[in-house]
Design a protein around this nucleic acid. Sequence first.
DNA 1: TCTGGGGTCCTAGGACCC
DNA 2: TCTGGGGTCCTAGGACCC
Length: 417
Amino acid sequence: MATGGRLPGADDGGEDRVVCHVDMDCFYASCERLRDPDLRGEPVVVGMGYEAGEADGAVATASYEARAHGVESAQPISAALAALPRRAGDADGEPTGYYRPVDLDYYREVAAEVKEILRECAETVREVSIDEAYLDATERTAWEVVDGRPLAAGYARHVKERIEREVGVPASVGVAPNMSAAKVASDHDKPDGLVVVRPGEVREFLAPLAVEAIHGVGPVTARELGEMGVETAGDLATADPSTLRERFGARGPTLRARARGEDDRPVTPTGRPKSLSRESAFSEATTDTERVRETVTGLAADVARRAEGEGALYRTVGIKAVTPPYDVNTRERSLPGPVADPDLVREVALDLLAEFEGTAVRKVGVRVSNLDFTAADQAKLGGWTEGDGDGGGGVGNEEADRETDLSGQSSLTDFGP
DNA sequence: TCTGGGGTCCTAGGACCC
DNA sequence: TCTGGGGTCCTAGGACCC
């Protein structure tokens, strides 16, 4: 373990890491406020599939002011409007809010500024989503208490304040000796939270919280645990491991460990995606085969274009068809080898879709998986040039090498993430 | 809660191989 | 020939996360 970047006296024996979880508060709404300061302090609703002045779509993010009026994430915009009418001109009388359509490109610009700061603050940064990241700050700070507080607390405050000062959006930050606890800590005092959980205190910090607070416990698991009489993280921490394994498989013991404050997953940098997908819902279920096929055709083209943009080859093409009331059906087909072929994505997707012809569908999706970034990696290393005189055919040649195990073995398999 | 879009990981059965 | 055990891949579904 290198100790070069650590503060004097930071040696804690190498046992306790300092893991920081940074979670941007209602990020999309905060971004909208960043470019339109009139929205500060006001209820803001950001809708996807929503266009200015209309009522279609669903709530992507609502500011805390909007939530106070009953607006919830994933709610239809029509329902949000019923709870909180759109602001029109002078806002006297009933409470009203600002509605904005999602502008992902802009949010990504803001997120890039935040992530730049995070990368300056820690050696290892794992970006979980556009608005969330884990930092391993073990090399930058320590749990040592100075002037009555852990150095790690000052470090976390520094990170949080840099984001607010330099980018202008609020964040909640949690610090703890592992990822799971740091996540719960950042959630604990949102928005604008800063929660520090020291190594010896994780279990008692978690104990009184509802099981849902543990990352990985969703509604289904929470209900099943409830039936077993397990309601708090403290209950889960002492539940019988073999019973948990029987009911929940491998997840059982994992969740129990997290409830006990144990999580030895290292913070690893964000890797390559495992799949790419696009999906689209119809305003109501439809049996119009042509319409569904057109939608899938468009989604297939989008997915193929994104894969190309990421330098990803794919070996599996799949579709999703959601049928009423809300049955999720998936079908997929693997190809002999990785390809980058938009026509093939469309053909396979439409072929898989044929099974649902005549069935009402409310949503469809297209996905590529079994991704292969070898070509992109090689290109970054200067590109391969050996005998690749036939343009796009190079991809196929590489595949042939791998399939037949003739020559590609080391060069094509040793470049894992 | 009557449900948007983009992901991850796990499970389980069957095929196929040795 | 009706019998092992182990491993990997493929597919479909489910739970969860943001």
